[in-house]
Design a protein around this nucleic acid. Structure first.
Lengths: 182, 182
DNA sequence: CTAAATACGGAGAGTTCACTTCGCTTACAA
DNA sequence: TTGTAAGCGAAGTGAACTCTCCGTATTTAG
């Protein structure tokens, strides 16, 4: 692979991350413009628009997964769990919108994105288990519902750009439900 | 207004509710086809596609508002609060998607939809106050964060058609956070 | 029953977007 | 330095979609 080709690929991915982060319905032209390349170059690296969306989504999911794994391995998993939860809620607006665009546009998310999503879920599961072992999270909460709650809280905070203070109070309510009853 | 015109308008609204409920990116043609009218008729009643989306959204919001008001006025507001919360989460998939389509497509939601949304929020606020008065919901929870939580939970349950059992367990976690600490 | 105002629908104009073609340019090996 | 394979971008293609025009059909008042 030629050096300029690799450069352009990276520039396109970065531009796509930003453009689709703001509006997942943006045109491929917009991505090309921001990346400073021609449209054809975008399509040469990512044969369809879905491929491009998927690449962006996969990249984001993997980043989150690595963060979760690092936090789970560290000490004080309980605090780490809540930190990670808050962080995802704050940051994940774009990621979810892109996921929507994928599932609504394409038939289903592609192989790579699916694998990355499963990886994130598993890593989050590790973090949850650790947090439960230290008593920071109630033991009878299963991964499926906690994960659904994570996604939901993210979306709730996302839709309209909610006042940060309201978002924090909302997270407070969520955390009250996650902490052990006693 | 002629009788057939009124009929057609109603038929179009019903069809649009169904079509956009499944996919808010559906074309106006699809709505016309389902309603059994020509495309021009749809555009005569709703000059732009945004107008049509807005009419559908407004209608749904007003329906929810009325339900909330009825429940707030009845007895056992505590139980009613949780019932309403669950119901919105279960049903509101389409409504939220339409709202998204509006805000992403158009510049901002129109006057009618905005008013209807405010009405629903206020009605939900009444329900919340009643539930707090009877001790079913912790008193230090404000409307903004509870409403954000309602929207978030709806979205979490919506995205992928979640297993109903998982959804219920997720709601269980949310409710654990909403109930009084003591 | 009749007339005219009102409503209807299909064909088309104009736009946008994903994706392709092709002549030109650039990186890199010998 | 030079030949060539790989890469590039502008212009073009075709499909889909929103919205309009206009001749035809229907309702309804007198």
């Amino acid at each position: 692979m030629r050096a300029d080709a690799r450069d352009n690929r990276a520039r396109i991915l970065t531009a796509a991350d930003e453009v689709f982060g703001q509006s997942p319905h943006a045109s491929t032209d917009a991505v090309a413009k921001l990346a400073g390349v021609g449209i054809a170059t975008v399509f040469r690296h990512f044969p369809t628009k879905t491929d491009l969306l998927e690449a962006v989504l996969t990249q984001r999911l993997e980043r989150l997964r690595n963060q979760a794994l690092t936090l789970a391995a560290g000490e004080n998993a309980g605090r780490a769990f809540y930190t990670f939860f808050s962080q995802v809620v704050v940051e994940s607006s774009a990621k979810l919108a892109i996921g929507d665009a994928l599932t609504s546009a394409g038939i289903a998310a592609g192989e790579d994105a699916r694998k990355a999503a499963a990886g994130l879920r598993e890593a989050f599961g590790s973090l949850l288990s650790e947090a439960q072992r230290t008593g920071a999270v109630r033991g009878d909460a299963g991964l499926p519902e906690v994960y659904a709650l994570l996604i939901g809280a993210s979306r709730g905070a996302t839709t309209r750009n909610v006042d940060p203070e309201v978002r924090n109070r909302m997270l407070g309510l969520v955390y009250a439900g996650l902490r052990p009853a006693a």
